[in-house]
Design a protein around this nucleic acid. Sequence first.
DNA 1: CTGCACCTTCGAGTGCACTTCAAGTCAAGC
DNA 2: GCTTGACTTGAAGTGCACTCGAAGGTGCAG
Lengths: 120, 120
Amino acid sequence: MGITIQEASRVSGLSTHTLRYYEQVGLIHEVGRDTGGRRSYTQPDLEWLDFLTKLRTTGMSIAEMCRYAELRRRGPATAAERRRMLEAHRERVLERIAQLGEDLAVIDYKIDLYHTMEKS
Amino acid sequence: MGITIQEASRVSGLSTHTLRYYEQVGLIHEVGRDTGGRRSYTQPDLEWLDFLTKLRTTGMSIAEMCRYAELRRRGPATAAERRRMLEAHRERVLERIAQLGEDLAVIDYKIDLYHTMEKS
DNA sequence: CTGCACCTTCGAGTGCACTTCAAGTCAAGC
DNA sequence: GCTTGACTTGAAGTGCACTCGAAGGTGCAG
């Protein structure tokens, strides 16, 4: 019914090692197994992995992602808390983007200095 | 003539441990010592630390910062190469910012979904 | 039915960027 | 002169997020 860990790895961009690790730490709960005991990833699993990856690349720690995953597992009653987590994270990402912009301006300035140096 | 490691720590925002570590790995060359062998940071040292911090917070690895520092130590002949390093880094930072923006849009979308859920 | 690739689990190992420790030195205040 | 506290060094330790290895199970091509 689902796809193998190999295919899930290709689709998600995460290594098979990482997929197993994410399951182990509780980021992705109870991936189904086929008759031979092999993992079988469903479409919802893949969508969840995709969202996890976005949280991850925006700098959320594995520990916090675990807390979010745990809330999600507990069902709709935790929706407000999950929303607050995402909102807090959103603020951190905005700050990070602003900081990167500032630092980039300094780097750009340095690059300009080098150009000026090379021309003279 | 210069300031103590404690003061340099306060000014730079780096811990005294990190300042010693940066010197050890060659990021900041030959910080002056006072009569008692204690580190004495000069204004140029602090400016360099400040720039290093910007490279660091924009995601440059210690190893690459070391290469940059080494080129800088070798003098003006390496200016073009340093400029190229900064230009390459600049591209990576721009990509990173773009990626963060994209991922943030998805997070915003999720937050909206939660708001909608809570209202209904 | 045998070889082979790929799967399983569990635990140990890796790389990065610090961070802490241990042992000793030094300067200032009492 | 002695204590106190900040400094010095080199080496070892930490936390995070993977990443790999060992030992064994499974399924399909030849």
